[in-house]
């Protein structure tokens, strides 16, 4: 079995966002970059399949030199090889999906894993777009996955519960928190990863069709009000304020 895991380098969740001088991108100063949290579940699932059934796991990222960090980490965790598609990994989801599709087409991947969303653009779109471009099945926002002979059965999170999706391989599976508990890299894994080479390829050119024309910080929230007194009085004052001032009820 051949598995591709697409990983994205994203700003850490504790990052304070600042807008760059161009007015439409993130100011990269002081940003700590990490592997997308949902991509970690995707990679873990691929490694577990490899351990259970045997598989060749290829880690892939689209980006610049800094994205190699994400790939090095994937190798340390158990990916067999890594590919960096040199291109704009922060571009729109359709551009990135086209780059990955151009790479993956014809290589015989049975499964393609990625996170259900990056935590920067929050598009939650690359996986389904990639599945469509490759003409294969998709199972999105997955919390449980079982494989059969050339088939999959996946549990996907929906409003108020989940639904079971069945389909044929190959398929794009986008991981959701709850799918598994990602492992930490072992020292042995980290040492072995240092010796592996990351294959570098130029990404196919794919212009964005949904373009960020400006980026702005949200307006400051108006200053709030503290409610004093004993708990019973505070509770009463809060409900009254929600009713009369905020008109929530």
């Amino acid at each position: 079995m051949k598995i591709l895991v697409a990983l994205k380098q994203v700003p850490d969740t504790e990052t304070k966002i600042k807008v760059a001088a161009d007015g439409r991108s993130l100011d990269p100063a002081d940003v700590k970059w990490i592997t997308g949290p949902y991509d970690e579940y995707a990679l873990e699932e691929a490694i577990r399949i490899k351990e259970a059934k045997g598989a060749d796991v290829v880690a892939l990222s689209v980006g610049g030199d800094s994205a190699k960090e994400v790939l090095r980490n994937a190798l340390a965790l158990g990916a067999d090889s890594a590919v960096l598609l040199k291109g704009d990994g922060q571009g729109d989801a359709f551009a990135v999906a086209q780059m990955i599709a151009a790479f993956a087409q014809g290589k015989g991947f049975d499964l393609i894993f990625c996170g259900n969303k990056g935590i920067g653009g929050d598009n939650a779109a690359m996986g389904p777009m990639l599945a469509e471009l490759m003409g294969i099945a998709q199972a999105n926002v997955i919390v449980k996955l079982e494989l059969g002979q050339g088939t999959f059965r996946a549990e996907r999170e929906i409003e108020g519960g989940s639904e079971v999706v069945e389909g044929a391989l190959p398929a794009v599976i986008t991981a959701q928190k709850g799918l598994n508990e990602p492992r930490y890299a072992s020292l042995k894994g980290i040492m072995a990863a240092k010796k592996k080479t990351i294959e570098e390829l130029d990404a196919t050119s794919a212009p964005a069709v949904a373009v960020v024309s400006s980026l702005a910080l949200p307006p400051e929230r108006p200053a709030g009000r503290l409610l004093a007194g004993e708990p019973a009085a505070q509770a009463q004052a809060l409900l009254q304020a929600l009713k009369d001032e905020a008109k929530v009820f």
Binding site: T15, I17, V19, L26, D122, P207, V211, L215, L217
Partner: peptide, 17 residues
Amino acid sequence: VRPVYAGKAFATITFTS
């Protein structure tokens, strides 16, 4: 207009398609 970075910023999107 859509929230990015989970609402820490808002992006205005235009389309070329």
